[in-house]
Design a protein around this nucleic acid. Structure first.
Lengths: 122, 122
DNA sequence: CTATTTGCAAACCCTTTGCGCTGGT
DNA sequence: ACCAGCGCAAAGGGTTTGCAAATAG
């Protein structure tokens, strides 16, 4: 079973790589359709599913929001503006974090999300 | 518009307060029906909605999982076991966290979730 | 007695899936 | 020419909502 290189895949990948912030499925669809108007929602879901399984995408889940997706690059965290609802990337990660985990537990990874006002809304 | 003290509200509140970990809506329903068999799913959703808006409940969102709810007590974080899928509370929170936020941004709150193996699964 | 709240079922998302057609190789 | 992948539309699963009956105050 071989993987084919289709326009749809190129478009979805491109949209996510060029995004300045994590995108929802519908945002990916909207941006993708500017390049390829026939792009369908089902295809976006399928492609995002593939990319996520291949660990080329990361899911950013924020309570109350639909999931967002971003290119899997280096380890980082997020800031969600409660004013304009945009999600920003935050660099850095304190080493001490792991010390919060109780003895006997084995932490593998973690998510950290800040909420508040971004530069523009503040 | 005054709020009435119904059996359903008491049950939902009690279930969540007595829970040893954050519960999904269906877990709240199942536990609640042991005390009040007629309790309906819609009522659980409505009551959780009210409590969340009143900030008496906190939502624990984990990518891929349905949201869970817990009593709003002190500030703390969570550990999700990827072995048994249970969610544990983690105490403590490094002061340095806020220093990750860029200048001009105003952090109000944050979520932190660890993933890995719990004591039992490790 | 009156207005809120409940339970039910239908309506609504958002996401997934079956299927015939398109198009990459 | 073959078959992975697409678009469409229907199905699924979780959550919300309209409404008549139940019930707190």
């Amino acid at each position: 079973m071989q993987v084919r290189n289709t326009k749809q895949k190129q478009v979805v990948t491109k949209v996510i790589q060029e995004a300045e912030c994590p995108l929802t499925v519908h945002e990916v669809l909207a941006r993708g359709q500017k390049m390829l108007p026939s792009l369908s929602l089902a295809t976006v879901y399928r492609e995002i599913g593939r990319l996520t399984e291949a660990h080329e995408l990361q899911t950013v889940a924020i309570p109350g929001d639909p999931p967002r997706y971003e290119a899997h690059s280096h380890h980082h965290h997020h800031f969600k503006c409660t004013g304009c609802d945009k999600v920003y990337e935050i660099e850095g990660c304190p080493k001490e974090l792991k010390s919060l985990v109780p003895k006997g537990f084995k932490p593998v990874t973690h998510d950290l999300t800040f909420y508040g006002l971004c530069k523009a809304c503040n």
